[in-house]
């Protein structure tokens, strides 16, 4: 897929081209995934970008690099009921609509500060009684779950061991990877 089609797929207007994030240029045809039976390739891309905003790459991998988008897709497909699934699927459109209202642009075209503001604002909204989920809070929760249970984070940040082979009941906090609150 070329850049033009990709831009079209993502629903970015020509006007916004100047502010299209850098990553679009580095994409190739392989980047637009196959329909996975739950999310279309387009939705997968949007999800992938959303988790990237929630936990970005810094000097360590972010949620996108760690495949958290795929994880969320599988989790929502298999582990939630139909109502939640439907709200999840329609959530992307609603998120962009809100973003348009708020900052006059779809989320992907906002600056980092604006995006964070949109997501934090939406996250703080109480879930209305007729809804099962707050889309942003829901995706954020799954992003955190997927990120924290990823191999990279568990092995490099959480000192995860499958086989500890020991137990010390009185271990100094100073020697642990934790600090006190």
């Amino acid at each position: 897929m070329n850049r033009r089609n990709l831009i079209k797929t993502l629903g970015i207007s020509a006007v916004g081209l100047a502010t299209v994030p850098f990553w679009i240029d580095s994409w190739t045809a392989e980047d637009l995934p196959e329909d996975d039976g739950f999310l279309t390739g387009n939705q997968q891309l949007q999800l992938s970008e959303l988790v990237n905003i929630i936990i970005p790459k810094t000097n360590t991998p972010g949620a996108k690099e760690l495949g958290v988008g795929k994880f969320i897709s599988v989790m929502v497909r298999d582990c939630y009921n139909e109502e939640v699934k439907a709200e999840f699927l329609s959530g992307f459109g609603e998120l962009n609509a809100f973003s348009e209202d708020f900052y006059g642009n779809s989320l992907i075209k906002l600056t980092e500060a604006e995006r964070n503001d949109v997501l934090c604002t939406l996250e703080s909204y109480e879930t209305p009684p007729e809804k099962k989920i707050n889309f942003v809070a829901f995706v954020k929760g799954l992003t955190i779950a997927g990120f924290m249970s990823s191999q990279y984070v568990m092995e490099n940040h959480l000192n995860y061991e499958l086989v500890p082979a020991r137990f010390h009941g009185s271990f100094p906090v100073t020697q642990s990877i934790y600090t006190n609150v």
Partner: peptide
């Protein structure tokens, strides 16, 4: 057992820092 305090405030780099700053309650 010591509780693990999960600070999941924020979005973006601040969230990431909060998550990887491991705290015991």
């Amino acid at each position: 057992n010591r509780s693990k305090v999960n600070n999941s405030e924020g979005i973006g780099t601040s969230l990431k820092e909060n998550l990887l700053d491991l705290k015991l309650g």
